[in-house]
């Protein structure tokens, strides 16, 4: 075994994969703007992603809001800045935790199921059958899912923001002894629309990433049950990593302004 050859092969495989992904994204975007469209499928996926992920996202952000309140209280007490708890909770939830946690949860829930479903269709020749029935598989399978991801995640994150702030409020008022009115006032005093909007923009980006990775790995799934299993794993892992990378990128972009 020549180690250089192994490195070279891995590098070439990486380049080939990147190129294939690029083509896939380009095809998806170009099919987004060309008819026919499938509004019924879009609605179906929006409900699947936006509505059925609500419990998962709600629970995640609820407990995150609660724990942020608790943690920031103990840390800030060291320099007697306990009053900032409400502000810290709302800013960290809207700017960071809401979108990132919702993105990661949806990557596990939706990205995996998209990869498994499309991968199974690939393996059982259903995607080939679509082509023979004059229906472009990217248009029919991928575009509705990606659009649904971009539409649904901001909605999910908005709901998650509210629930997360509510979690902080519960801990702040019932455990840490803040006055309810004061806590709420502090929450909104320093909150700017920009904080919420930047989180929603992130959410849309994450929704796109989750859906594209799920569809891409399913679409290029290898044969057999094993191929579909690998596609599912790869979809979740790659979507999660890309979410964290893109999170930094988008934040940098927003801060740079």
């Amino acid at each position: 075994m020549n180690p250089l050859a192994a490195i070279g092969r891995a590098f070439l495989a990486f380049l080939a994969g990147t190129g294939r992904l690029g083509l896939f994204v380009a095809a998806t975007v170009s099919h987004c703007v060309r008819p026919p469209w499938y509004p019924r499928l879009l609605l179906q996926h929006v409900i699947e992603i936006g509505y059925y992920s609500l419990p998962v996202v709600g629970l995640t952000t609820l407990f995150s809001g609660m724990v942020v309140a608790l943690q920031s209280y103990t840390s800030f007490a060291r320099f007697s800045a306990e009053g900032a708890v409400a502000t810290v909770v709302v800013l960290s939830i809207t700017r960071e935790l809401g979108p990132v946690l919702a993105g990661l949860m949806v990557a596990g829930r939706i990205g995996a199921s998209m990869a498994a479903e499309i991968g199974t269709m690939r393996v059982t020749e259903q995607i080939d059958a679509l082509t023979t029935l004059s229906t472009h598989p990217v248009k029919y399978l991928v575009v509705p899912r990606v659009l649904a991801g971009v539409i649904s995640l901001p909605f999910l994150v908005l709901v998650g923001d509210v629930i997360g702030v509510f979690g902080g409020y519960i801990v702040g008022v019932y455990k840490l002894g803040f006055e309810p009115v004061v806590y709420l006032q502090r929450t909104f005093d320093y909150l700017e629309p920009y904080d919420v909007i930047s989180g929603l923009v992130k959410a849309a980006v994450f929704g796109f990433l989750v859906a594209v990775m799920g569809c891409y790995h399913g679409y290029h799934s290898r044969r057999g049950a094993r191929g579909v299993g690998a596609a599912t794993t790869n979809a979740v892992v790659s979507a999660s990593i890309l979410i964290l990378v893109a999170n930094y990128g988008v934040t940098e972009l927003f801060f740079a302004r």
Partner: peptide, 25 residues
Amino acid sequence: FQNGALFDSLSVLENVAFPLTRGRV
């Protein structure tokens, strides 16, 4: 197709109607 390749998320009727509607209503 040799293995049928029916769309397993659609009913029999929707499968047979697929070429007529191309997946729409």
